[in-house]
């Protein structure tokens, strides 16, 4: 099978890779670049575990082909170490028991950060609506919602 050349920036570092056309971004991140913080759940865009940032906005890496990311800037959960909002969310997730097994957490945090930055006035109903695309099977969501609301409130 023919392979295609892809140049992209991942967590601030340039990467030049060759991918199979059918390879999705999550497999490139995990298998080739060894960034295993991005988790694969349903692999058809429903569960949200694979959510990463592509060109500054959250996207599903399981239904985004690696080949379509030529020239893109990708940020995975490993790329938010110095991010102030993510630091606040990590702390809040810990405080509010917003994770148990942690499988959904990388995608949950990328979505949560988008909520905090894009919807500073979000109330609980809006936070729940926006989190609907990230499934968690452990927590029942209460802790996650509280954590996001906590960070939103702290920034007002």
């Amino acid at each position: 099978m023919s392979r295609i050349a892809v140049s992209l920036t991942v967590n601030g570092e340039a990467a030049r890779v060759e991918v199979e056309p059918r390879e999705h971004l999550a497999d490139l991140l995990r298998g080739t670049l060894l960034l295993t913080g991005t988790h694969i759940g349903c692999e058809h865009g429903v569960c949200g575990a694979c959510t990463v940032e592509i060109d500054g906005v959250p996207a599903r890496s399981c239904i985004t082909h690696a080949g379509s990311c030529d020239g893109a800037t990708v940020r995975t959960i490993e790329g938010f170490d110095d991010d102030e909002v993510m630091a606040a969310l990590r702390e809040a997730f810990s405080q509010e028991h917003a994770l148990q097994c942690g499988y959904c957490t990388p995608g949950m945090l990328v979505t949560a950060r988008d909520i905090v930055l894009r919807l500073p006035d979000a109330d609980e109903a809006r936070v729940r609506e926006e989190l609907a695309g990230n499934l968690c099977r452990c927590t029942g969501y209460r802790g996650i919602v509280r954590a996001v609301l906590h960070v939103l409130a702290a920034r007002r």
């Binding site: 865009g45 959250p58 996207a59 599903r60 979505t111 988008d114 990230n134």
Partner: peptide, 9 residues
């Protein structure tokens, strides 16, 4: 429509 990360693409 679906979820924000889906709507972004």
């Amino acid at each position: 429509i679906a979820y924000r990360p889906v709507r972004n693409r």
